[in-house]
Every structure is written in structure tokens, then in C-alpha cells.
């Protein structure tokens, strides 16, 4: 009885190993199944929802949609966003709060998307860029509103 079990085990062992080797041989001879991506040479197109970094949209007249309401700053869990506001004088002589600088710390950002959801005017969005490595950490602190840009008309 012991001998029968022993031979059975050896037989099962050899067949299971051969089955596994057959699979390995299949992939060795079928190169179409290989799915390696040649990353730096061929860059994949990332989906539009991919969260790479926060950017502010500007139109061709260099106007943005940010009113400086600081909703994103309050929504951010780790103080990634700092908004500096100023007071503009409107043509009819009234003071109006406006965005001065939108400081964004990419090194603190965890891409949780809460600022984008919180924004009432769709001023900021996530960009698809992901190659963020730099030699100096200070380069990761960015100002999102372009120099000389102003608030788009009609955005409250």
C-alpha cells in the first residue's frame, strides 16, 4: 500500500511539473502575449480623470475663473493650497475681493481631489502630467495663476 501511494505521488508530481512547464513554454513561444510597455520611449495616454497635479485653467485672453473664495484651501486636508487675496477697485468705485496669488505645494499634495470637488466655479482641475521629479524641492512650490491674468467676466 505504501509503495502504491509513493508511486502515485511521484506520478502526480511529475505530471504537475510538466503541466506548469508547458504553460511556461507556451508564453516562451507566444510573444504576442507579452504586455511590457516601453515606458520612456513610448508614453501611454493617460485618462482624462487621472490626478497628476492641480492646475488652473486659463483661456486665450489670459483670464482664469478663480474668485479667491478659499473653498479649496478649506477643503484641503494637508495645507497644500494657500490663497492670497487682494482688493480690486471696480469701475463703480466699490472694493471687491480678488485672487492675488494661488500658491500650490505639489510636494504636500496627495491627489485626493477634494479641492476640485469643492471649487464652486471650476477654476482648478487635475492635469495628467506625472513626471514631477526635480533636483530642488523649492521648485515644487508653484503659483498657479499666470502673471498678469485676471478674473473672467461673468464669474461670481
Amino acid at each position: 500500500m505504501f509503495l502504491v501511494d509513493y508511486i502515485k505521488t511521484v506520478y502526480n508530481g511529475v505530471t504537475s511539473l510538466l503541466k506548469g512547464m508547458r504553460m511556461t513554454g507556451y508564453y516562451f513561444t507566444h510573444h504576442k502575449e507579452i504586455i511590457t510597455q516601453q515606458y520612456p520611449d513610448v508614453k501611454q495616454v493617460l485618462p482624462e480623470r487621472f490626478r497628476g497635479e492641480v492646475v488652473m485653467t486659463h483661456d486665450e485672453k489670459n483670464e482664469h475663473r478663480c474668485t479667491g473664495c478659499t473653498a479649496c484651501e478649506l477643503a484641503c486636508p494637508n495645507a497644500t493650497i494657500k490663497i492670497v487675496t487682494k482688493f480690486d477697485i471696480t469701475p463703480d468705485g466699490k472694493k471687491k475681493k480678488a485672487l492675488d496669488t494661488f500658491v500650490y505645494h505639489l510636494e504636500l499634495c496627495t491627489m485626493c481631489n477634494l479641492c476640485i470637488v469643492a471649487c464652486p466655479t471650476d477654476a482648478i482641475k487635475m492635469a495628467q502630467s506625472f513626471e514631477h521629479s526635480v533636483y530642488d524641492r523649492s521648485l515644487l512650490t508653484k503659483v498657479l495663476n499666470k502673471p498678469g491674468s485676471k478674473l473672467m467676466e461673468g464669474v461670481e
Binding site: 480623470r49 490626478r51 496627495t110 491627489m111 481631489n113 477634494l114
Partner: peptide, 12 residues
């Protein structure tokens, strides 16, 4: 996941 949630591992 990347297409619907925007991230691959820590989706939120």
C-alpha cells in the same frame, strides 16, 4: 480604476 477614479491605488 485609473479611468473612473483617477488614481491607481489610493483612490479616495
Amino acid at each position: 480604476m485609473e479611468e473612473t477614479c483617477g488614481a491607481r491605488l489610493t483612490m479616495n
